[in-house]
């Protein structure tokens, strides 16, 4: 499986990653090599497997959707991690 530079650019765009020209070239080769290796999965007959089953075997665990009080100091610490915040709110670039 050989990925073209266009495909690599498209994937980077989907992933919201800015890549340098050098990175684009490097990842193109490396991802192609990894995908070629992964292609051996095709050899496995999986016709007997139901893909909807999760391998962990877990079933849904439910809990009440309740509002719980968050300690004030943790709220403060959380907000302080943002590069830009004002009046208890995080500021972002214009979206629209």
């Amino acid at each position: 499986m050989k990925l073209s530079e266009e495909e690599i650019k498209h994937i980077a765009d989907l992933a919201n990653l800015e890549l340098s020209t050098e990175e684009l070239k490097k990842y193109g080769g490396q991802l192609s090599a990894i995908l070629s290796y992964i292609d051996q999965l095709k050899e496995v007959d999986t016709s007997d497997i139901d893909s909807s089953e999760h391998a962990s075997g877990l079933v849904n665990a439910w809990r009440e959707d309740e509002v719980k009080n968050w300690p004030k100091d943790e709220i403060k610490l959380s907000l302080e991690q943002a590069s830009d915040f004002e009046d208890g709110q995080i500021k972002v670039k214009k979206v629209l």
Partner: peptide, 11 residues
């Protein structure tokens, strides 16, 4: 890729 890998995982 993804579905195939999950099936192999189940095996």
């Amino acid at each position: 890729y993804y579905i195939k890998a999950q099936k192999v995982r189940a095996k």
